[in-house]
């Protein structure tokens, strides 16, 4: 038995983590507390399941008979998504550049960063409400809303991407005596363009999703059709609209995958 020591005092590799357990306990207490505070009871949830099967029964089969209404809403949603994505991407290209701290002095980048942060803070629906008030019902409010949402997302990520570039290439181009525009075009853009396309296709996707939603507050597109169908309890038409939205979004994902592959 020489050479083999017993290892009684070895630390347990799967030591109990009291901190994590305490967090889980807090979570359970919180859930119990909120269920009480917000008056959520099993009776109500059970009752809901009855309604749910009723609702599903009325949704199936989906009713495509008003396809012309559906199609016009769909086309408007697509137009909102395309216009707002392209305008938003174009504006963010510049704002992102101005917000990058390694490209611009701080008196330029700080206000631009604040503007971008402001665009990001509010949910698109709230921005849509404000725009509906100022430019009236219709597609224009939706377009402006999604432009703001796109700026908040793309310009922020684009600025971060620019801040991470390697400065060696910038120096090399500068050493040839290139001007500011050439430095941006030939040393900064090649390094970040692929990522920019990535953010843009993602935003195109999410604008497509949101363009079907801003209609709920009156900013045009399929959302308005959906909301009025809900209010008239035409659940079979609601199901048809939902199927079209999901199909549209899957198609959008398919397209953005192709674009991403081209620009890789």
């Amino acid at each position: 038995m020489a050479g083999i020591k017993s290892v009684q005092n070895r630390e347990n590799p799967f030591k109990h983590n009291w901190f994590i357990s305490a967090i889980w306990l807090l979570v359970v207490c919180y859930v119990l507390y909120t269920f009480n505070a917000m008056d959520l009871s099993w009776g109500r949830i059970n009752e809901g399941f009855g309604h749910a099967s009723n609702l599903l029964g009325r949704m199936i089969p989906p009713n495509f008979s008003r396809w012309s209404l559906l199609l016009s809403g769909l086309i408007e949603s697509l137009e909102i998504a395309v216009i707002s994505s392209i305008c938003g991407i174009f504006i963010s290209l510049f704002l992102g550049l101005f917000a990058a701290r390694n490209m611009m002095p701080s008196w330029v980048s700080t206000p631009v960063r604040a503007l971008i942060a402001l665009c990001r803070t509010f949910h698109p629906v709230i921005i849509a409400i404000l725009f509906v008030k100022s430019v009236g019902f219709g597609a224009l409010a939706g377009i402006l809303t999604l432009i703001v949402a796109s700026i908040g997302f793309i310009a922020k990520l684009f600025a971060e991407a620019i801040e991470e570039i390697s400065l060696k290439q910038v120096e090399a181009i500068r050493a040839t005596g290139a001007g500011f525009a050439s430095i941006i075009l030939f040393s900064v853009m090649p390094q970040v363009f692929a990522r920019f396309i990535g953010f843009s296709t993602y935003q195109l996707d999410s604008n497509l999703r949101n363009s079907t939603m801003v209609g709920i507050v009156g900013a045009g597109g399929l959302g308005g059709t959906l909301f009025s169908a809900f209010q008239r309890f035409d659940y079979d038409f609601v199901a048809a609209i939902l199927i079209v939205i999901i199909a549209l979004i899957m198609f959008g994902e398919f397209l953005s995958n192709i674009v991403r592959r081209i620009f890789r």
Binding site: M38, D39, L40, R44, I45, G48, H51, A52, L55, V125, R209, N210, T212, M213, I216, G223, L226, F227, F230, F233, Y235, L242, I245, I246, I249, M250
Partner: peptide
């Protein structure tokens, strides 16, 4: 996962409001 993501939260809310009635749930 995809269908959960494609339906916007407001649309989910509309669905659940018609199931459970207006309210927190």
């Amino acid at each position: 996962l995809v269908s959960s993501r494609s339906v916007n939260s407001l649309v989910w809310a509309l669905l659940f409001v018609s199931i459970f009635g207006p309210g927190v749930i």
